[in-house]
Amino acid sequence: MSDRLLTASAALAEALIEEMTRDERIFILGEDLTAHAGIFGQFKGIPEKFPGRILDTPISETCIAGCGVGAALTGMRPIVDFHFSDFVTCGMDELCNQAAKIRYMFGGQVKLPLVVWCPDGAGLRAAAQHSQSLEAWFVHTPGLKVVVPSEAADVKGLMKASIRDDNPVMFFQHKRLFRREGPVPDDPDFVIPLGKAAVKREGRDVSLFTYGSGYFLCQEAAAELAREGIEAEIVDLRTLKPLDFETVAASLRKTYRAVIVHEACLTGGFGAELAARIQAELFDFLDAPVLRVAAKDVPIPFSPPLEDFVLPRAADVVAAARSVCNR
């Protein structure tokens, strides 16, 4: 099957259409979904193709999330659209106390096939309450899977896997990347299994472990580093939980140097978790401290120079890579 260029947004819609065609238990629930096919146009074609299976709700994030849980417990396979990932705070009980715990605390009696789609990330001058990257909160909650795709093909393949998974999945897709195009296999059976990282650029000198928007910073940084004679390996983690630590380990055993890159703020971010595991399990394969490149520890500010200053840049990745390579 050949690849076509699709935007990340079109890749999402294609995944949903294919899966909704395959399984009539799948439906989408959220605010403002039918008038414009989602507030980002991300569900293009779905309202016409699946009337009654993409449902507009009132502004009731608590109940929308809980509704997804209740429907998943009773034979459906809901996809909950959270409008902006920032609004997960209004559904935290339903996501973290209910969805994450129900299967476990009831002794494995039931499956909970729920996908929570969260458009996240900064760079759109949307300021503090519409720009966050909150994946680490959910990684810290046992019972949830956490997926953060970067390229269009990842969006499609991982969304299909998330829908087919019988567990609750938090799916974070970066808003600024919706229109970014990438090659996507023209194959309805193209699925990327959860818990499988991808080595997207091979290199011998330093491993860049990243996910989501961080991947594109690493791409840019790797090109710059190559000009300086440093060959960076880029590992796109894609799924943070379950984490493909084997691929992380294999890369590090080759490069002996690690930089972790994410857009979420530094302190308590996923990079801290990954750095801790690397030092605990791969200490003998480290020739330098593990460095992290992340946003500064403030809310995302509005004014362009402020926002740009807070967010991680490719130059920061380059500097960190040089540092661990003693250059």
Partner: peptide
């Protein structure tokens, strides 16, 4: 449910599921 009122959003989901099925 250990969370007071935790069952209400869930039961709406069950009700929606009944309606869809």
């Amino acid at each position: 449910n250990g969370v007071v009122a935790g069952g209400l959003p869930l039961i709406v989901g069950a009700g929606l599921s009944i309606k869809l099925r």
